[in-house]
Design a protein around this nucleic acid. Sequence first.
DNA 1: GCTTTTCTAGACCGATCGGTCTACACGATT
DNA 2: AATCGTGTAGACCGATCGGTCTAGAAAAGC
Lengths: 184, 184
Amino acid sequence: MRTVFEKSDAIALVAEVFRECGYEGASMSTITARTRLSKGSLYHFFPGGKEQMAAEVLAHVDAWFAREIFEPLETAEPRAAIAQMWTAVDEYFRSGKRICLIGAFALDETRDRFARPIRAYFARWTNALETALIHDGAPADDARQLAEDAVSGIQGALVLARAMADDTVFERCLGRMRLRLAST
Amino acid sequence: MRTVFEKSDAIALVAEVFRECGYEGASMSTITARTRLSKGSLYHFFPGGKEQMAAEVLAHVDAWFAREIFEPLETAEPRAAIAQMWTAVDEYFRSGKRICLIGAFALDETRDRFARPIRAYFARWTNALETALIHDGAPADDARQLAEDAVSGIQGALVLARAMADDTVFERCLGRMRLRLAST
DNA sequence: GCTTTTCTAGACCGATCGGTCTACACGATT
DNA sequence: AATCGTGTAGACCGATCGGTCTAGAAAAGC
């Protein structure tokens, strides 16, 4: 049989495998099995192999967050942008059923391979949120701290939700973070 | 050359490799290289192979937390136990230079192999902290939420600190969580 | 001192790893 | 219809995987 994909499809499919298995855990055989893409197709789209796949997946995820979250925070009306952030986060992570691929890569030694994009993603998120909070009238010191707490809090909620295998944990933590951020 | 180890040494050494590389990333060759234990020694101590190593490492970590953190929270004077918790956490994670092996295992599919101990660790931590907060006079609802936020917040701070490759992130987040927990 | 037990070193095994390569399916171009 | 370019399928490769096994070093028991 023969099924034809475009590269953008391939990136999204491969992303889910890395998200579920991690970089080392995602072998070429699990990638081909889960994406239904043959090795031929994968190495056609990503001649640089697994490392290129992961790099493009990271860029793809970063682009999604940039469009849906970072840019609004940086340029749109702050309260609306923050509301949009919470909505987008809840939708993206599917109430904690999905995890943050970039956060997961940060934990083990694959971080060293992709240190720059990982750092850039979190730095931009924190800075964008800080900017929005300042535009909304928060004192500069508070804004920085609140932003850092929110970004780190989301990662923590994802870890705890998965560890407990309980979606409601994520929803509850997210709800409280939203309130904490709003009460400025 | 011949160096003799005891099993407890082996567990502690192997733990660091899993912590740094993750379950899939820790190959037998990296384990032998970093621990200086030969395959013969490793399979002598852990006839069940990698899976047994990881299981015993998880139990070892859990035991440390039980002794240093959970039991004090469950039985000692609550304010002192909470203070001890923050001290122990900061010391254990070395200001974010070390990560939480159990949290890391929770993120990818290795969670499914070790679902029970992972869940048990986080459930006990959250429950123990909730108990201490209630004993300290916090309303039951608040206590549960504060406990959940603290446990998840620590995990988030570890992710963010490693992602940013910046120890000060962990210290700052930890400091604010400590205050938030104390202001009841 | 001799035996037994415990532990180590590392050669070795089949399976699986990431990656390459050939053959070809198929739409677009001419 | 012939050609070309893009993408697919999967056999194949050397390297590395997790795991087994033998030989022997040192400690413990007698």
